[in-house]
């Protein structure tokens, strides 16, 4: 086939570009992913019974601040990464900021507590449930976000996959926070932070396969 013929064929009867801007597609997917994660949490686990007590609310807000911070930064990155060449305009440092903040707070909280409490503070009551729930809840939100990015044209598939995984993990942890009754900063840092990092690594590994165009 001659390239001239291809160009001629592509140019006949073209229509104006009326597809949604890439950014809006990503944000719609983010909203859908959040709804899906909340739905799975409500059906599968249920909201914690003591939600209305002051201590529970404070820790819920803290967990939400951590996860919403992650999702917020990562979503802005994803709208850039979804366009060709967008990877030039992202750096991983601000995406790591929420993690640095929670680790710092966890360290302070451990430092203030007697060492005999450390084991309980880090492991909590339900570390296994947390370790399994966040990645499992993240699966469908991850698929939703990947489907949205596939409509665009990312040129760094590893980094785009990683950020998609980061958002999915963050959205999932956000929903799980409504169920989780382990209220300690070290627990949030290790089990929330750790599982979200796992989701990010899984996204980086799957990105090149899922996003190729």
């Amino acid at each position: 086939m001659r390239t001239d013929d291809l160009v001629a064929a592509l140019s006949a009867n073209i229509e104006p570009v009326n597809g949604r801007p890439v950014g809006r597609t990503v944000y719609i997917a983010l909203a859908a992913a959040t709804v899906v994660a909340l739905g799975i949490m409500l059906v599968g686990l249920g909201v914690r019974a003591d939600l209305m007590t002051a201590r529970a609310l404070i820790f819920l807000l803290l967990k939400l601040a951590f996860t919403v911070g992650i999702v917020g930064v990562a979503s802005v990155y994803l709208t850039r990464l979804a366009r060709p060449g967008g990877e030039r305009r992202t750096s991983s440092i601000s995406a790591a900021m929420p993690f640095a903040a929670i680790v710092l707070l966890a360290a302070i909280s451990l430092g203030l507590a007697p060492s005999s409490h450390w084991n309980k503070m880090v492991m909590g009551d339900e570390w296994l449930e947390c370790l399994l729930s966040i990645p499992i809840i993240a699966i469908v939100p991850f698929a939703v976000i990947i489907a949205a990015v596939r409509r665009a044209a990312p040129t760094n598939l590893v980094r785009t996959g990683a950020v998609a995984g980061l958002i999915a993990g963050g959205v999932s942890a956000m929903a799980y926070a409504l169920h989780c009754t382990d209220d300690s900063l070290p627990f949030v840092a290790v089990w929330y932070g750790g599982t979200i990092v796992l989701c990010t690594l899984a996204g980086a590994a799957l990105g090149p396969r899922l996003l190729r165009w």
Binding site: V17, G19, R83, P84, G85, W213
Partner: peptide, 21 residues
């Protein structure tokens, strides 16, 4: 993929990123 081009940005880096990809 022309819908992924942002008119606020220069065109050259966008084309280059696709070509290199």
């Amino acid at each position: 993929k022309r819908h992924t081009y942002d008119p606020a940005e220069p065109l050259t880096p966008w084309v280059h990123a696709i070509a290199r990809y």
